[in-house]
């Protein structure tokens, strides 16, 4: 009994702080129901009959669809897209590293809990549309990814996986964690799949953005949802503070009042970089704060997946 005490404490510490976001099934259903989820014509752009617009060329695109007229007129490599009737697999990549387990005093739940609600809601929507859903992890307790599955059973499996995940792992040390997740996506996501990354984009290894942007080939749609805690989003601290990162041993002592603007500028710079880079690949970045209702985030993701700006 006494020997297992530390282990129990460790488990409790690592348990996801759901806060007001649990139970996941109900919250996810509520979020999904708030979004119009009717049958859709395939939003997949790629090889097909009906012209669907242009987008910038990314390495790996089929050279047959390069629009030479646009090249000659504008001097830019553009790819012609076509609408086609097909299923659109949903690939969820959830960041479950230690930083995602953070929940400030005023937040309804941990960032990972919020991401789980969004992911579950998206799963419900996708399955209701007959699209398969796959789940990959960055960090976390090293659980196995879920392959693309459809049907009610798939929803249960995804929800079960999301419910039991525990935040953990230091992406600063495990620099290949993101690459492993994206490699699985690149290998298994079929043309036209929607890849949704749910992460706080903090402590991600270098080149993560490049690797993620590279998934835009084969007509995949990339959506990155940056989930932030209200404290991270606003930095509502005052006076001298001593902060330590969730991952690694980094510590900083500073005066919050003096550095708030600098911090927010750095945060915005990261968002801007992701947004710009994803836009080049036809993707979008969605900012989400855990204090906001998950349904709005889900709605933005759905809109983003349909090609509209969130």
């Amino acid at each position: 009994m006494s020997a297992s005490a530390p282990e129990s404490r460790l488990t409790l510490e690592q348990t996801l702080d759901w806060g007001e976001l649990a139970p996941l099934r109900l919250t996810a259903r509520s979020a999904a129901d708030g979004v119009y989820a009717g049958g859709h014509r395939s939003q997949r752009r790629g090889a097909g009959v009906e012209f669907g617009g242009h987008r910038a060329y990314v390495p790996g695109d089929d050279l047959r669809f390069i629009d030479r007229h646009a090249l000659m007129r504008h001097g830019r490599l553009m790819v012609r897209q076509f609408e086609t009737e097909t299923d659109r697999a949903l690939r969820l990549v959830v960041d479950a590293s230690a930083s995602m387990g953070f929940r400030s005093a005023g937040a309804p739940g941990a960032k990972l809990a919020y991401a789980a609600v969004v992911a579950a809601a998206l799963t419900r929507i996708a399955i209701s549309n007959g699209d398969p859903v796959a789940l990959d992890w960055i960090g976390g307790d090293a659980r196995e990814p879920l392959p693309a599955l459809g049907g009610r059973e798939a929803f249960e499996r995804v929800v079960a996986a999301l419910e039991t995940v525990r935040p953990g792992g230091d992406l600063g040390l495990d620099t290949a964690a993101a690459e492993r997740a994206f490699a699985g996506v690149a290998r298994h996501a079929r043309r036209g799949s929607v890849v949704v990354l749910l992460s706080d984009l903090i402590d991600l290894p270098e080149h993560t953005l490049d690797r993620f942007a590279a998934l835009a080939s084969l007509g995949r749609t990339l959506i990155a949802v940056r989930v932030l805690d209200p404290l991270e989003a606003s930095f509502a601290l005052e006076g001298p503070v001593r902060l330590y990162a969730s991952e690694g041993s980094f510590r900083v002592e500073t005066d919050a009042s003096l550095v708030r603007q600098g911090y927010l500028a750095r945060l915005a710079a990261i968002a801007s970089e992701w947004r710009q880079r994803l836009a080049e690949s036809g993707g979008v970045l969605i900012d989400a704060v855990t204090s906001e209702a998950p349904v709005s985030t889900v709605r933005e993701v759905v809109l983003g997946a349909r090609g509209g700006q969130p």
Partner: peptide
């Protein structure tokens, strides 16, 4: 010293010596 608290994006916070210090 100020109380320590967790803040995942701590590395984004600029270092400025607190005024009292």
């Amino acid at each position: 010293r100020a109380d320590e608290r967790e803040f995942p994006p701590a590395h984004l916070v600029p270092v400025v010596e607190p005024v009292a210090r």
